[in-house]
């Protein structure tokens, strides 16, 4: 019996242990679950030792201590994290934590603003008017949708939150269908408008310094609709990913495990 076949049997039995939960909670599932938690940590120990500590700390110090003596400082700071287990000097662990958290908050602040907020905001502000010769039609359709947005906001300000949002959405859909059928290039401009309006509305929904009433309430309502579309799409995407994993596990059980065993017995 080859080592691969032994491994396949172990993997198949563990897979069945986890699938047994579909019937009900049972000791086989609990065993596999506990093993998974342990093995995951064991995996990270191996990965951290091999990919982090070995190349960045141990090898540089062993091969050229003089040139890399400064690495003793992070090693000491890292070890200092463990003083938290000695109650009398547990407070010393704060030094390492302070440097670590401080550095990454600084990095995070720059990265979030420069790497996420600005590029995302830039990508949202796309041209609303197409190129010649359909510029006139595009302008007409975009103006129609934009006017509906303004009218919707006015209606929302009067207290009709949902109706205000519906005015914009329905007008936009009509304009988009017309563009799709007769002026394909205008469709891009309308999509850009939708993207821009969607981002602004979602941000307004998350803005809690103003009460969500009147025009703000209408925009917030539209923001919820965009969020629901986003969540629904993300949910559908996740389900498809999980089903794909399930198919993978079934393939493994049928082809690798049963098929592999039959092939091994058959010689």
């Amino acid at each position: 019996m080859s080592i691969e076949l032994i491994g396949t049997w172990i993997a198949a039995l563990l897979t069945l242990c986890l699938f047994s939960f579909l019937y009900k909670d049972n000791p086989f599932f609990r065993f596999a679950e506990a093993l998974f938690a342990g093995v995951s940590l064991g995996y990270y120990i191996g990965q951290t030792a091999n990919n982090t500590l070995k190349p960045n700390l141990v090898l540089p110090l062993v091969h050229d201590f003089r040139g890399n003596y400064d690495l003793v400082i992070p090693a000491l700071l890292g070890l200092n994290l463990y003083t938290r287990y000695i109650p009398r000097i547990a407070w010393m662990a704060r030094f390492s934590l302070a440097v670590y958290v401080g550095y990454y908050t600084g990095v995070n602040m720059v990265q979030k603003l420069q790497g996420e907020v600005l590029p995302q905001a830039g990508a949202t502000m796309m041209p609303l008017l197409g190129a010649f010769p359909i510029a006139g039609t595009t302008a007409l359709l975009v103006t129609l949708a934009a006017t509906a947005l303004v009218l919707g906001l006015i209606d929302s300000a009067r207290g009709h939150l949902t109706r205000g949002a519906v005015i914009f959405v329905s007008t936009w859909i009509v304009a988009r269908v017309v563009a799709q059928v007769a002026f394909p290039l205008a469709a891009d401009a309308l999509d850009n408008l939708l993207l821009f309006v969607g981002v602004i509305m979602v941000l307004i929904y998350f803005f809690f310094s103003l009460e969500h009433r009147g025009a703000v309430g209408g925009m917030s309502r539209l923001g919820i609709w965009f969020l629901m579309l986003g969540f629904g799409a993300a949910f559908g995407y996740t389900v498809m990913g999980r089903v794909s994993l399930l198919i993978g596990r079934m393939n493994f059980l049928i082809i690798d495990w049963i098929g592999g065993t039959v092939r091994a017995i058959g010689g």
């Binding site: 958290v101 401080g102 908050t105 600084g106 995070n108 602040m109 979030k112 603003l113 996420e116 907020v117 995302q120 905001a121 990508a123 949202t124 999509d191 939708l194 993207l195 309006v197 969607g198 981002v199 602004i200 509305m201 979602v202 941000l203 929904y205 998350f206 923001g223 965009f226 969020l227 579309l229 986003g230 969540f231 799409a233 993300a234």
Partner: peptide, 26 residues
């Protein structure tokens, strides 16, 4: 389009929140 708009709104909001939290920590 609509999904990108929603994800982008969430991302911008979360990034601004993370940046302000970073400032509070520093």
């Amino acid at each position: 389009n609509p999904n990108t708009a929603a994800q982008r709104g969430i991302m911008i909001g979360a990034a601004l929140g993370a940046a302000s939290l970073s400032l509070r920590v520093i």
